[in-house]
Design a protein around this nucleic acid. Structure first.
Lengths: 219, 219
DNA sequence: TAATATACGGAACTGTGATTCCGGTTGTCA
DNA sequence: TGACAACCGGAATCACAGTTCCGTATATTA
């Protein structure tokens, strides 16, 4: 992860401030120009030299990765918040809404999701391990299915598919801007019992690492 | 368009052959490496010098554009074939199936759709003008809605959204490979009456040019 | 306030990949 | 078959970013 461990001496105040500036600038630049926005642009938007950018993030990829980690922290938070919602369908669909809104708020992330899916996947796994992100989602899904509000053949691995497809629509500022329509269609598709079962393709397990066994069921 | 008008003298035989080779090679290379595949790679795969590639396609974009045009020719054909199907829902959903299969067959096109949506949009418009592609789709949609098999708030502009979102899933060879599940979900979502109406966002008209008025209704 | 470890800026360097150029080939037509 | 326009190959060119480097500036701490 990007943040230094507690054993290290804290960053100098200006360094900490600049780090934030850079992250912010990156969000803006990538949102505006896609991932091909240049490091020089990020630097100048942050009112900082390129050297400073590279001090904090040794490569462009590292910078992008940092954004991805921030993003999944917010995702995990949204998922956890959804657990509080009483109605099981409202909880799950509410999460999907919130999650895609988060994505839509900074187009930069949608760009990352589109252009660097592997990187996002890696970040998602980190979030799963550190914030039990997947566990939370699984709970939401189980609850909705138990309540009969979500088709039975839906599974955890479908979530990234949904996010990916919505994200790809969000990246273009023009014609495909009405990704919300697509979201509504998909949500209705989830609710449907399914005209026929979803194709059961061999999906690589979402978390290739330790799939922590504990799975807290909500009452 | 890429093909010379009939008034010009026909291409020399070797030139015509090489043109095909290059197009083929491009399909392979872009499918394998994405649009960042290099012109040199395309050339050597086509067993041809780079110069030859550039003779036929003055820029890399022009090459990609040619692929896009071929693609929409196939799309238009699929749409027309769907008109033959008796059942209105089968016709439309069959088209969506076929259309996304075509996209899936050459990942290269999915890459273009993902990385150059504007280019695809332009190609689609050309197909609309020359092959009345949109008219055909409109017919399919109208029929399905008249038959009560397709939600009323669906509209022509949603088709590219669907193709885009499926295409973006098809581009990654790994985790998101199960785009067919997503397709099934979406189709069920189309069939549904809709838990609530689709958000009616201001969508830029699909064909900014002359929206040819004729709209042949099928019996 | 002096000493020093950190951090900063931005010119210069580099690798990559698109595009150009031109001497040599080869279909095509009389 | 000969002449020539059209075509071919691929080394060389050019431009664009990512990354490095190092002299200078500044928090921090004693």
């Amino acid at each position: 992860m990007a943040t230094p461990s507690v054993t290290e001496r804290p960053m100098r105040a200006d360094a900490r401030r600049n780090r934030e500036r850079v992250l912010d600038a990156a969000l803006h630049c990538f949102a505006a120009d896609g991932l091909q926005a240049q490091m020089d642009d990020v630097a100048s938007r942050a009112k900082v030299g390129v050297g400073t950018v590279y001090r904090h993030f040794p490569t462009k990829d590292a910078l992008i990765e940092a954004l991805a980690d921030d993003y999944f922290a917010r995702q995990a938070e949204a998922a956890r918040a959804a657990l509080e919602v009483e109605d099981a369908w409202e909880a799950l669909s509410g999460y999907v809404h919130r999650a895609s809104d988060i994505l839509g708020e900074n187009r930069a992330l949608a760009q990352v999701l589109r252009d660097r899916p592997e990187m996002m996947a890696a970040a998602a796994i980190r979030a799963a391990e550190e914030l039990s992100f997947f566990d939370t989602l699984t709970t939401l899904i189980d609850r909705a299915q138990d309540a009969g509000a979500l088709r039975k053949d839906f599974r955890l691995e479908d979530i990234p598919l949904i996010m990916c497809s919505l994200g790809s629509l969000q990246t273009s500022r023009g014609d495909y801007a009405s990704w919300r329509r697509q979201r509504a269609i998909i949500l209705d598709g989830l609710r449907a019992p399914g005209s026929e079962p979803l194709p059961d393709e061999p999906v690589p397990a979402l978390a290739k690492r330790k799939v922590s066994g504990r799975r807290r069921r909500a009452g």
